[in-house]
Each structure stands twice: as C-alpha cells, then as structure tokens.
C-alpha cells in the first residue's frame, strides 16, 4: 500500500516547497498574455544580417580557442593531479588529502566568479577567460579522473610491480590505457561545457562570440543576434559530433 500518512506528509512538504519557489521566482503564466510581443520581437531577428559574418567567424574561433585551451590546460594539470588524489596511487596520505582538498576548492569556485576576478585583475579579453575555464576544469577533471583511477583494475598494477617497475612507471602504464577512453569522454564533455561557459564569460568581457552576442543584443541589432545564435548552435553541434567521433575511434 503506497498510500500512507508518511507519503501524505511528503506530498504536503513538496507542495509547500513548490508554492514558495513560485512565489520567490514570480512564476506567473498569465504573463504570456503579451505573447504577441514576443513574436513581434522575434520577428525583428529576421532576416539575418550576414554583413558582419567574417567578424563573427573570427570571434567564434576565438570562443572555440578559449574553450579548447581552457579545458586542455584543465586536462593537462588535472590528469597528473588525479593520480595523487586517488587513494590507490597517491604517494602519501597527507598528499592525498591535500590534493583532494585543493581539487574540491577549485571545483567549488564557479568559472563566472573566477572570470570576474581575473577580468578585473588582468583586463578584458579572452586570456582571463581561458584561465578561469582552466582553473575550474583542473578541479573537475582532476576529481573525475581520480575516480576512474580508483576504479581501475588493480591486477595490471600488481603485475607491473612484480616486474620490478618503478611505481610511477607502473601507474602510468597500467592505469592510463585502462582509463583513457573514459578520460576522453569526460574531456569532450568538459569541452562542450567550456564552450557554453566561454559564451557567458564573453558577456562579462571575455571576448569571443559571446561578447559579440551580448553587444549586438544590447545595441538592439537583432538581425545580427539571430546569426550569432545560429553560429553558436553550429559550434556546439560540431564539437558534439567531433567528441563522439573521437570516442568511437578510441574505444
């Protein structure tokens, strides 16, 4: 029998939570009465204005560059750190705890916060955005990869130890081939996320197509906005396809 008093209480609490959330967020479907305005607004987006296409393309490349560089630096540092943050490969207990703490600290700062700080300190442009993405991704990839390391089969490691291999050698050669496909999956997912993040970082002055979108929007150039949005969608789809292609090739 699922209908119990306990369940009733749960439902009541849930209803209360929903009610307060709606109050707090001014959730009000009646606002759609002015839906026509929205359609009028969207009508201004078309036809697209292709005159600024070359600039948009170079900005998009900047965005892709930001995302790629940021997430790659994240992987570059996250991968080695993940090995000292996994209990089965960490050199000592203190190092293990310290590195885990460092990783969760990096993860806990959202890119946008870090971006705001760096953009103020280093000036506007893509470089601070790259650093913000990299920093956060060291934390995320370091943690995710350390979990892969911990879940890897201990057999090959033992075999490498028995062969007389140095520890770090054994780890490198017996674990990396095992986890590599999953590392790539995580990496490509993080690259996709980094593309979206670099758009947001563009809004706050980090450059790229995100900044252009923001500027076009604020200056009411909606026929350019529509093309910006289209380009962004194409980028995300291409990165997604590329990711699944590489993953399939590797597995």
């Amino acid at each position: 029998m699922w209908f119990k008093r306990k369940n009733l209480v749960t439902v009541l609490i849930l209803c209360l939570l929903l009610y307060f959330s709606m109050r707090l967020t001014e959730f009000d479907l009646s606002k759609f009465r002015d839906f026509r305005n929205m359609i009028d607004f969207l009508a201004q987006w078309f036809p697209m204005d292709t005159s600024k296409l070359p600039g948009m393309i170079s900005d998009s490349l900047e965005t892709v560059g930001m995302a790629f560089l940021g997430s790659f630096i994240g992987l570059f540092f996250g991968l080695p750190i993940s090995f000292i943050a996994a209990w089965n490969t960490s050199p000592t207990k203190p190092v293990y705890h310290l590195s885990r703490f460092a990783l969760s600290f990096m993860r806990s700062i959202p890119e946008i916060v870090f971006g705001l700080i760096l953009l103020t300190a280093l000036g506007l442009g893509p470089f601070p955005a790259v650093l913000a993405i990299a920093f956060h991704n060291i934390g995320v990839l370091g943690k995710l990869i350390s979990e892969l390391v911990e879940a890897s089969d201990p057999g090959p490691q033992e075999a490498m130890k028995a062969v007389g291999s140095k520890n770090w050698f054994a780890h490198l050669f017996s674990i990396v081939p095992q986890i590599w496909p999953n590392v790539l999956s995580h990496y490509f997912y993080r690259l996709e996320v980094a593309i979206r993040t670099s758009l947001v970082l563009g809004f706050i002055g980090g450059g790229g197509i995100g900044q252009r979108l923001f500027n076009d929007f604020k200056t009411f150039q909606y026929s350019s906005v529509s093309l910006d949005v289209l380009i962004i969608m194409v980028i995300v789809i291409i990165v997604d396809l590329l990711g699944s292609y590489v993953r399939n090739r590797v597995i």
């Binding site: 057999g155 062969v163 007389g164 050669f173 081939p177 496909p181």
Partner: peptide
C-alpha cells in the same frame, strides 16, 4: 610472475604487453 587472471594491460597489444616486462630495467 604469472597470475590467475593474467593481469595484462588492456587495450595494449601482445607486443606492448610483453615489452612492459622490461620496465624493471628502466629507472
């Protein structure tokens, strides 16, 4: 040393696995 569950390194070739046997000579 040989093992019940072989403990080979997955995703590497026979040749590469055999070559890991020389790791004791690398420092």
């Amino acid at each position: 040393m040989i093992f019940q569950h072989f403990n080979l390194i997955p995703r590497l070739s026979v040749m590469q696995n055999v070559l890991t046997g020389t790791f004791g000579y690398r420092s």
